[in-house]
Structures are given as C-alpha cells and as structure tokens.
C-alpha cells in the first residue's frame, strides 16, 4: 500500500519544528506501524536524508516507549493498542497519515517524534512506591489479599507509563497515569500505611511538572493502550480527599530514625 505521511520534524528541543510530507510506497499491510516507519527511514537514508527519530524498544506493547499521535489519536485508531502493535491493515492505501509527538508542556520534544517523559519518573519518585527495605519481609502468604482487590490492583498496575493519557487529554493531564499507581497501591494491604503521603506527594509533583487538570472527559481512557479505567481516577480523588483531611504536614525526609 502507498501512503502520504505528514510527520513532525524538529531538530532538537530548541528548534521550532514543522510538519513535513513524506511518501511511503509499497508498504505491506502486515507490517506494524513502526516497521512502516523503519522502511521509510531506510529510504530516507538512502536518499541522504536523516531518518525520523521516534522512541521504540520492545515492539510488543509493554515497554511503553512508543509514543506517536497518529491522525490525532495517541497510538492511532485501534482501541487498546500501542503504536508498535498497530498494523498497517488498519489503514487504507492512499490515506494521509499525520504523525506527531505527544504534545504537553511537561513532555518537551527532544527530536522529531521523541519527547522527554522524565516528568513521569519524577511523579513516581515523589511517592509511587512502598517503602520496604530489601531483606527478610514476612512470608508472601502471611497476608491474604482478597482476589477481587488483587485483580483490581492488577488492572491498575498494567500501566506502561507511555503517556498516551497526557497526549490524549485536552488539558494534558496525567491523572490516569497517577491514579493507576495510587489505586494499585492503595488497594493492597502492603500499600496502605503510606497511602496518604503517597497521593499528596504525587499530586504536588504533578503540579510542579506543569501538567493540566482533569476535566472528566475520559479521552485518556479511550487512548490508554492498556484500557485502564477512569474509575481509578475517582479512587485517587477519594484517596486525596481522605489524605487532605488526615495527613499532617509531611516532614522533610522520610520519617524519623
């Protein structure tokens, strides 16, 4: 199949960048979207043009590296699919395809379609963990976890941190991403001791990073390749309210000696 691509090209974070039109010819419909870009890149290089930079790694939908907004939809038109698992059979020959990077102030473009998502790491570093030293915790089966809680925690834990929720959100809000972690850890007994501090710290960090606010439009849920439900955002809101009422001012550092 033959396609006309409109791709965002930007030299580096300081460059203004612009859309560029590139023809992609003779693409197999069984190729993945990224394999289509590989083919385009091989041709660009043969013609002495720099290849299109895009993040990718595992190419099986789990590492969360790939981050393409395809025709206005993060990860393209297939529901519950990452760009790397999207196949060209989802498109028609002759189609125009717009390929853009995630757009958010908190995700500055580094080059072409590559963005800096370290803001997500900083949000997790602020509180997305359970404080446990490596050593000899109690036996894994000593605290039974009701299956439905474990399953629900898992539904949230499948987040791959790709940032599609931010890219899709009209306000570039990371609430679905944050809520997945907050929800997972607050549902499990192991995560309960730190639940207040966790949600407060993460919500604070989100603001510092320059993300927008949730307006309950659920674009995130529709774009999420792991089909994470906005129910987790509601749970996080609940957690936040509870924490705002209960938690004293967090002390500097982590607890006393």
């Amino acid at each position: 199949m033959d396609l006309t691509l409109h791709v965002w090209r930007q030299k580096n974070s300081k460059d203004a960048g612009k859309m560029e039109t590139i023809e992609a010819k003779g693409i197999s419909e069984n190729a993945s979207f990224l394999e289509m870009l590989d083919t385009v890149n091989e041709n660009l290089q043969k013609n002495g043009k720099e290849p299109i930079a895009f993040d990718h790694d595992c190419r099986e939908g789990i590492c969360g590296s790939c981050s393409l907004v395809i025709n206005g939809e993060p990860h393209g038109p297939e529901y519950g699919t990452t760009s790397c698992q999207l196949h060209m059979r989802s498109f028609k020959s002759g189609q125009n395809i717009f390929i853009e990077p995630w757009r958010a102030k908190a995700f500055p473009v580094l080059k072409d379609l590559v963005v800096d998502r370290s803001a997500f790491d900083r949000i997790q570093q602020a509180g997305g963990f359970i404080s446990v030293n490596t050593g000899s915790p109690q036996d894994a089966n000593s605290i039974p976890v009701p299956k439905q809680d474990a399953d629900k925690a898992f539904d949230a834990a499948v987040c791959i941190g790709c940032g599609a929720c931010v890219a899709a959100c009209k306000n570039a809000s990371p609430m679905l991403f944050m809520s997945a972690k907050v929800s997972q850890l607050s549902l499990l007994p192991q995560g309960k001791p730190e639940r207040e501090r966790r949600v407060l710290a993460m919500v604070d960090q989100m603001k510092k990073e320059g993300f927008g606010n949730c307006t309950n439009q659920y674009e995130c849920e529709a774009a999420c390749p792991k089909e994470i439900s906005v129910e987790h955002i509601a749970r996080m809101n609940r957690e936040y309210f509870r924490a705002a009422l209960r938690e004293e001012t967090p002390k500097e550092g982590h607890g006393g000696e």
Partner: peptide
Amino acid sequence: IDQCVAQG
C-alpha cells in the same frame, strides 16, 4: 517472592 509481595 516475599520481597516482591511486600513491594506491592
């Protein structure tokens, strides 16, 4: 396994 369960 113990360690991982403790981590959530």
